[in-house]
Design a protein around this nucleic acid. Sequence first.
DNA 1: CATGAATGAGCGTTCATTCAT
DNA 2: AATGAATGAACGCTCATTCAT
Lengths: 203, 203, 203, 203
Amino acid sequence: MSIVQGEKHEAILDAAYSLFGSKGFYETKMSDIAEIAGIAKGTIYLYFKSKEELFTAVTRRDCGQFLDSMRAALKIVGFEERLQVLADRHLRYYYERKEHTKLFFRTPNNDPDLMEFMHQFFREYTKLVQDVLEEGGIAEPGLHAESFIGMMDRHKMDIMMNPSFNEQELEKRSYFVASLFLHGCMAAEESGRPVLVNRSQQQ
Amino acid sequence: MSIVQGEKHEAILDAAYSLFGSKGFYETKMSDIAEIAGIAKGTIYLYFKSKEELFTAVTRRDCGQFLDSMRAALKIVGFEERLQVLADRHLRYYYERKEHTKLFFRTPNNDPDLMEFMHQFFREYTKLVQDVLEEGGIAEPGLHAESFIGMMDRHKMDIMMNPSFNEQELEKRSYFVASLFLHGCMAAEESGRPVLVNRSQQQ
Amino acid sequence: MSIVQGEKHEAILDAAYSLFGSKGFYETKMSDIAEIAGIAKGTIYLYFKSKEELFTAVTRRDCGQFLDSMRAALKIVGFEERLQVLADRHLRYYYERKEHTKLFFRTPNNDPDLMEFMHQFFREYTKLVQDVLEEGGIAEPGLHAESFIGMMDRHKMDIMMNPSFNEQELEKRSYFVASLFLHGCMAAEESGRPVLVNRSQQQ
Amino acid sequence: MSIVQGEKHEAILDAAYSLFGSKGFYETKMSDIAEIAGIAKGTIYLYFKSKEELFTAVTRRDCGQFLDSMRAALKIVGFEERLQVLADRHLRYYYERKEHTKLFFRTPNNDPDLMEFMHQFFREYTKLVQDVLEEGGIAEPGLHAESFIGMMDRHKMDIMMNPSFNEQELEKRSYFVASLFLHGCMAAEESGRPVLVNRSQQQ
DNA sequence: CATGAATGAGCGTTCATTCAT
DNA sequence: AATGAATGAACGCTCATTCAT
């Protein structure tokens, strides 16, 4: 009956992800997590110091996967193509978490470690976007990165709250965002050109 | 010793704004609010049904003032000028609330009325931005409005968290955002022109 | 706009009787009573010192009416006839208060004055029954009175809780009780006689 | 230092019985019960869902013991003897709880479970009495049972409130009640016979 | 007499965390 | 490592009563 190292650790994270995401931080009880994970309540504390730390760990794993997947997807050439990838992955991230909205809207309110981690994550993500912009020769890449991320992120409400939001809508949206970022809202008037190819329209 | 109508109502809102803003929702006790407002605990409940409702009322007043001031400031002509005003007021809103960051980051997690109000506020604000864009002849004003708001809003982190962020920085930032939204990140390369006059640089 | 003396006093008692009876003591708020009575909350305190005192006053009026009506009804001759009247009135008292059961089952739990009054009422009522018995030549009238009252009172559950309990049932029950008290449960075996005439069977 | 199974459960019930009985339901605080039981406040909630449920559990245990003891005592022959046992046990129940009068007079006012249990207990007790009467060949055993219980129960006031009420008084009272129930108040006049032997007078 | 705005004491319950086994 | 029984701090809300007008 030997247990694979880390098996419980993962089981707890999985259970916590599922419950925190669907019910929210405050509405989730440690005992519920233990039950779903199939272990005793006290056992959680062998792996995680506190409920907040567990939430932070869940977030950390989730955000880490996001950054990893983003980095992998960015291993292509072409500035505009990479911008498009950023938009697509960012929006898709929320799209894939439609059933776990509470990970974003019902989080612990007062945990220094979580805030510290989120800050660091934002820095890291901003840096990643910034690097893409820099390689594209964009000036003030820091400010541009912040703005781009803001533009993308605003659409999470539509994506997560709107039940009829589908894959096609998603691609249209990411194309829109990347295009707007590149050429501004007056692009059409100024040149008439859609510079990016909207892949979803190609299909 | 006649009491001005609504005096207590205001006193409670003021005290709540101050405490919710500086300590956050969950960390603020009703008894603290009563003490600051100079009244008895039970009196709060004559004016507000619950702690959540009080927080929502604080938010409502604050957001209302924001929209009012925004609407007043938009009574000017010129599309780009009005865009600039949007960016300036949006960023300034956070700038003026540097001491009340918890109004945004430590809010009640699960209050239907607050969520309903925030939704409505977002709709209203989006509509306001959308109207500006429509008058400027921008296509897809809804998506553009969302994106613009996102771009602006992202900068709240820098504004609120960075203690050395000052007025000049603020104006540079709002100019940057409006300009990016208008012409995109490739504007410089594409035309070399800064279309908007950065007022903070004129001074 | 002159107000008849005691009009408000009565209005409060009426409102309190209605609410205490239908919702119970703890579930009734002074403000509700004031509203029903058509006066201000504070005004109740001009007439009654406290919620408990008001409940006691309601009880006092109700029990007083009971005793008065009982005394009037007992102005007849014949021991068995008077016993029958006792049973009939006792059971009828609950029958007429089917909509006000909470007067008996949700009373203040800890009010000395109410307890004192109830004791006195019981004494008085017991004395009244006792007098009937004494005049009927029954030995140990005190113990007999207690027992008779207990016998009668036990049937209040059936009367108040059973929605289909009707007038005829009531008369059968009061006849049963009086008869049992007179001759015991072995009466039939001992003599075969129903001594009392069951008026409801005469009809 | 091994802990006997159910030890805490019993300790809580004992503490609650003692406090509820002497001070009443509303006047007893959960923290007091915990203190008397020698445990932490929260521990009570591992065993009982609420204060109301705890009161109901206390009542349940107490009433259960009453019925058990009654059933055991009824394992004798002879109708009149068994009637006498009923009266004796019933009155003795109150006699033994002279220090816990509040179990009967200061109970929760509005608890569905307690009311349900009391109803069931009354039904069960009534059934038990009814069975005795039926075996004695008494007609209408249901109504007779109700009446007999009412007769007996009425004497609880004297027993509990009168500090000088003693064992001898108790036996006289139970003899009186059983005798009255058997032969009615006119028994003496009708036959001159005391059918039951008053055991307390034999001694 | 009448009002009704203001008061503030009072308490059941939850649940993250600990620690003896 | 694993358990789960025990802990106890923490707090929103009600509502009978008062009293200035």
